[in-house]
Write a protein that binds this DNA or RNA. Structure first.
Lengths: 203, 203
DNA sequence: ATCCTATTTAATAACCTTATTAATAACTAA
DNA sequence: TTAGTTATTAATAAGGTTATTAAATAGGAT
């Protein structure tokens, strides 16, 4: 039972509850009840509910954006890079299906949280945006791609990929299929989203 | 001051606060404070916070899906119908930019709320789905459209259009432009989304 | 065993919540 | 004016929230 430290157990339980119900609907009492410990133990280890949450939020924001951090093979065409990015993006989301809503929700209820996300995104952009922008400019100039911006490409990708997971609770109710078929449908949607994204870039 | 009835004032204030902060982060005390009346007046008129909320939620769910209820000209090609739907959809969203998150959030925190939305969607589908499905089948058969489903078309449309508004708080931070330029960008995005949607249907 | 430290619990202060009750105030009709 | 509604407020019950304090317990080193 205590092969995992209490601190770790609290952290993991808090993670689960925060992601499921959000910051404001998760009380430290709930977490303690779930862990099976005294409520004050949470303050003992993490000082405050807010601090505990911040730890988790940062971590999850990183996971949420992880797919965009992974380096891309340098010598493949831009189109291929975008395909890889979109597929990776969708993959990370399938493995963390609850994150899109969680992140969006917490930013919405407390705009301060945006700073964490902003830092991560800015960081990523500094890494990849210069070279991608250059490649994009070339593709456009050579007439191999539509005149567009990295911003638009990311927005399309994010909208298509995140959409599936945000609407999941609603969609589930309109697709009366067993869970494993739903997973197949999900993978198909990754393909379809990538297809649409690339299509949108054609000149 | 009391040219509007107290009941109406409470309703409108509750509407605003609920949409901004959600059900759980809006207390009846907050509403009363904002209205400038006693907290128990809210229960006097609406019996409970829950009932007050339900009234508002139903109304807003209808608005949220209103664009899909508007009838389509019967004799235009399916492609044109889809274009009109997408543009209308985006338009309703721009006029109710906070609704996508509001609806999604409330469904998430209380899945019971899904029933309201489900009823409305089922209703809409019964109205439009048979004829659209027939037209779609024909277009596919004649090789004028890719083999797809109404479900996928709606999912793509919703993802692209709703995405813009869900990410708005984040996007605003990365576009350092004045608000009126932002509005222009928004309209452009409607065009772009429609373009992508129709592109995705080409054979 | 004892002391020391780290962990855990119990008790509680100082809030904030919603719904109910009873007491006023305002208005309306006879 | 008076009686009867309707609208509004004050007071409060019953519960929930987080953070703090002090007390209890456990484990290890001496």
């Amino acid at each position: 039972m205590s092969d995992k430290s209490m601190e770790q157990t609290i952290l993991e339980t808090a993670e689960r509850l925060f992601i499921d119900r959000g910051f404001s609907l998760t009380s430290t009492t709930d977490i303690a009840k779930e862990v099976g410990c005294n409520q004050s133990l949470i303050n003992y280890y993490f000082r405050s509910k807010e601090k505990l949450f911040q730890t988790i939020f940062k971590k999850k924001a990183l996971v949420f954006l992880a797919s965009l951090r992974e380096p891309l093979e340098a010598h493949i065409p831009l189109q291929e890079k975008i395909r890889v990015m979109s597929e990776r993006h969708f993959m990370t989301l399938s493995e963390n299906a609850k994150l899109p809503f969680f992140i969006l929700n917490e930013i919405h209820t407390n705009p301060e949280r945006l700073n964490v996300v902003k830092t991560i995104i800015t960081d990523i952009l500094q890494q990849i945006s210069p070279s991608l922008n250059e490649e994009l400019a070339l593709e456009i100039q050579e007439g191999r791609m539509r005149n567009t911006t990295l911003f638009e490409i990311f927005l399309t990708m994010a909208s298509l990929n995140i959409g599936v997971f945000l609407f999941h609770p609603v969609l589930k109710n309109f697709i009366n299929k067993p869970n494993d078929e739903l997973r197949t449908l999900l993978l198909q949607r990754s393909q379809e989203n990538t297809r649409i994204l690339l299509l949108s870039l054609e000149p």
